[in-house]
Design a protein around this nucleic acid. Structure first.
Lengths: 342, 342
DNA sequence: TTGTAGGCGTTATCAC
DNA sequence: GTGATAACGCCTACAA
């Protein structure tokens, strides 16, 4: 057990061959003779040789490393997308490292810097809520490191994107509320700095208009991180109103669940007093009572698509295509929070 | 924008100094004159210099990179521990990359190999269910890369460990069931290949014995990944029995929730017909109705403790301490699934 | 089929 | 205070 690990040079010396031969043998280069190769591989194994990727990466100018930047991995949407990314990336010989921004702009900038310094082959990112200045991503552009933004993207940035049509999804959700007879539809909106929450708000408004309902600013709650606490806070405010909404579209499942729970505590019934729709079809939406009507946004598939797109950019390098945008399907899933089980 | 990024060498040439001076200036080395330093930093910024960590890592033999290996990041316990790890690691100047094994032995071995090759400064791991052969971790030992195992550890391996007392936690859970009057306590066990599930089963048995209850093998359901489906399957089997249990301790919250849901579907009431206890205090346990009695295992704190322990090993390198084991506290949280709200 | 030599970009050690 | 030089471990043109 030497203090320092054996290297190719060491193996070469022991076997009386050159380092290039060792290097080639270990990579199954065709030009190496059968017996030399076997011999080298055997002793490499015996001596516990471990390739040094750091050196190899430096030399090859390639790391086989994809960086993923997401707001918070403990949100179902993100952990699912990461799973999708990982599946595709590993299959293609890349490993994935994950950076959590906790929706902080600073952390996002730092993450991008680390990934640039570490020469990641590509980056997949979902923007932090705080992020509006995007110079760090622009800088990325002239490092030739491909970027895919997913879900929360930025329109000011020309880059590859994978997203759903949030406007359309929100429209469907609110149109459904209108069709089941809601007249006073409220909305818990997310941080409007973020593309998706802006689009969901627009979709909400459009659906009301399309159904000849008036848009009441008092019925729009402007949230930020859409945590359970925020949801409870808004729900309480809502149930304190004189003229209460009879339907609500929440920009995520977490706040929708809070509304249902608050309704229960305050003896309102869902959907009779108020119908509730969430967003993302997280596991909890099936478990809560009444179960939650929500939008399925296919997070896992978004992750897969993002990784495929990124790897294509890394490997094909088609100079003609400047950027590509993929829209992933979404569906309204109707459950008891809008249509009671008979 | 040239095709390849500027390096220290390039900066040196442009400024008419040596690379060593550039290197030192950018790191605020004291021996560099005020004006030279400023000048170098300014042009570095202007020309968009990005340090190449790959080269630096090779030279310094240090990557400031901690690898984390977990079964599945979409389980609340793991995403919380990762958050704890990240917080501590980032604070100390390390970045964290995450590998998901999906409980597969092969993926675990591959992850360790990638991290060894990439010269991670340390590894934090939670064993995959499939893992019983631990040679890959033993190999790690003679690379001098410190390892911390957390939660699901391995007794055959001398390494740093951070865990809770699962035996004790399970004992508390089942003792509680006995004290509220349950006479026929069932258990949904996890994969017994895993230390924690073995300990929870032991704790269960010990609590029954301590309360003079007989251990009925028919009441022990041997699960594997403890998914919702497994939970439903066992719950249905349980409710089909002639003599039904009147209490059940589930080795995780997911299966406990399935039991509650199945009970509801089959018109049994919780806790009157059967009292239910889960494990991990996941967010869902507060939301389900009735809310779930469970064990709080402080995942976030386990993550923090693991990272602190690892970083200590990386930086102190105290040759006297071979390994260290930390036991994190746990508590029984009593909710409506065992004690109805009045 | 194998060897030689140079360099990937940085930093540590000497020297001046 | 600054520079020259070598080395981290690997890969690859070129040569033999």
């Amino acid at each position: 057990m030497g203090n320092t690990r054996i290297t190719m040079k060491g193996l070469a010396k022991i076997l009386g061959v050159s380092t290039s031969t060792v290097s080639r043998a270990l990579k199954d280069h065709h030009s190496i003779g059968e017996e030399t190769r076997e011999k080298i591989k055997k002793t490499a194994l015996k001596l516990g040789y471990i390739p040094n990727s750091v050196a190899s990466n430096l030399r090859r100018r390639k790391t086989n490393h994809i960086g993923v930047i997401v707001p918070r991995i403990d949100r179902y949407f993100h952990s699912s997308s990461i799973s999708g990314i990982e599946e595709v990336a590993n299959e293609a010989g890349y490993y994935v490292s994950i950076f959590q921004t906790k929706d902080s702009y600073i952390k996002e900038v730092e993450s991008v810097e680390i990934l640039m310094s570490n020469k990641a082959d590509g980056i997949i990112a979902c923007l932090a809520l705080e992020t509006s200045d995007i110079d760090h991503y622009k800088q990325l552009a002239n490092t030739k490191i491909p970027l895919v933004l997913f879900d929360r993207v930025c329109n000011d940035l020309e880059s590859n994107k994978v997203l759903i049509n949030d406007y359309d999804a929100a429209f469907k959700a609110c149109d459904h509320l209108a069709k089941i007879g809601c007249k006073r539809i409220a909305h818990i909106a997310g941080n409007l700095n973020s593309s998706i929450f802006k689009a969901r708000l627009e979709g909400y408004k459009a659906a009301l208009i399309a159904n000849n309902l008036t848009i009441n600013e008092d019925f729009i709650f402007y949230g930020n991180i859409l945590s359970e606490e925020e949801g409870r806070h808004f729900a309480n405010a809502l149930f304190d109103m004189n003229t209460k909404p009879d339907g609500i579209f929440c920009a995520n499942d977490i706040t929708a669940v809070s509304v249902i729970q608050t309704a229960r505590e305050r003896k309102f019934s869902v959907p009779q007093d108020i119908a509730v729709v969430g967003f993302s079809n997280t596991p909890i939406s099936k478990i809560i009572q009444p179960s939650l009507t929500t939008i399925e946004d296919h997070a896992f598939e978004m992750g897969q698509a993002s990784a495929r797109l990124l790897i294509k950019q890394i490997e094909d390098n088609d100079q003609n295509i400047v950027s590509e945008t993929l829209i992933i399907r979404n569906e309204l899933i109707i459950r008891e929070s809008t249509v009671p089980a008979e």
